[in-house]
């Protein structure tokens, strides 16, 4: 009986289901996870290394590594512009403006749309939502040629306005679909309570519903920004030089002038990845859901 065995034995028996045991199967599983981890991170590591290599090392078949940060300077300098005929800093700025514009349009139009879609069912409301999502199914290539013609005719080719307009097509469905589920999770009785407190529907929406989906808005805006930022095909075809974006600018180092600068490409790509990364880190804390906890019964 246990009593006679003393406290050490009693402690050893504390192992309950859910606690970790080391078994051959668990070792295999851990190794598999490790392998996947290496596989998925390797391209990133390669990129960082490449961006830090000088011109001589980058094409060598042996691993030679004498790190330099000169590539970043080159990309942002006049020399970079000479090599590619694109001002990389300007392209960054354009990208930020394009994406911010697209996200802004999506939020201003999308939040009320998501609220309406989440709160009211009407004939065809589901079809409408599905149609909006279906913009995301079709390959962009399918519409790019007519868009090119339309943009030329309207005179918005190679303008920021044109880019905001086309990127908004990418971000709007995202914003509406994400926020709709946030609004649906919110008890309609909160707004009903506000109505009975004497507030109009508009004020009930603005003062009760909207503050409660703030985390959702942050998450949707961030995702939309990243999707817009990463878009390549639209700026490639619909811009030339005045409104060109980071994604296009990066690829210019891969042979625009006849020679491919792999190390400069890598450096440009890393620089181009910075803004979304910084943005994600700054608004991370708003992404935590749970503000609405305690509003309605558990």
């Amino acid at each position: 009986m246990l009593r006679e065995r003393g406290p050490e034995v009693a402690l050893a028996r504390e192992l309950t289901p859910g606690q970790k045991r080391v078994t051959p199967a668990s070792v295999v599983a851990d190794l598999a996870i490790l392998a996947w981890f290496v596989f998925s991170l390797f391209p990133l590591v390669w990129m960082v290394l490449l961006a830090l290599k000088n011109d001589a090392d980058q094409t060598s078949t042996y691993f030679r590594f004498s790190p330099t940060t000169a590539n970043f300077g080159t990309v942002l300098s006049q020399r970079g512009q000479d090599l590619t005929s694109v001002d990389f800093g300007q392209a960054m700025l354009t990208s930020v403006l394009n994406c911010a514009g697209a996200v802004l349009v999506s939020l201003v139009v999308g939040i009320p749309a998501a609220y309406a879609a989440g709160r009211w069912k009407f004939k065809g409301s589901e079809d409408l939502m599905f149609q909006m999502l279906s913009f995301r199914f079709a390959p962009e290539l399918m519409v790019i040629v007519p868009l090119f013609v339309i943009y030329n005719t309207l005179g918005v080719f190679d303008t920021k306005l044109g880019m905001v307009w086309v990127l908004q097509l990418v971000t709007m469905p995202l914003v509406v679909w994400i926020l709709r589920s946030y609004f649906q999770d919110l008890s309609p009785e909160l707004e009903q309570a506000a109505l009975l407190d004497g507030y109009t529907r508009r004020r009930a929406f603005l003062t009760v519903a909207l503050p409660l989906v703030r985390p959702g808005i942050a998450a949707a805006a961030l995702l939309a920004f990243i999707f817009a930022w990463n878009n390549y095909l639209f700026p490639l075809i619909l811009t030339d030089s005045a409104a060109t974006t980071v994604t296009v600018a990066v690829t210019k180092y891969l042979g625009g002038g006849g020679q491919a600068y792999y190390n400069l490409t890598a450096a440009a790509a890393l620089l181009g990845a910075l803004p979304p990364l910084v943005l994600a880190l700054t608004i991370q804390r708003y992404l935590v859901r749970g503000l609405s906890f305690g509003a309605v019964k558990a």
Partner: peptide, 18 residues
């Protein structure tokens, strides 16, 4: 479903914690 820290449980005259 839970281990016994100390003490005994008997069903009939059979001790069952183990």
């Amino acid at each position: 479903l839970e281990t016994v820290t100390s003490g005994d449980i008997r069903i009939g005259d059979r001790s069952i914690p183990d």
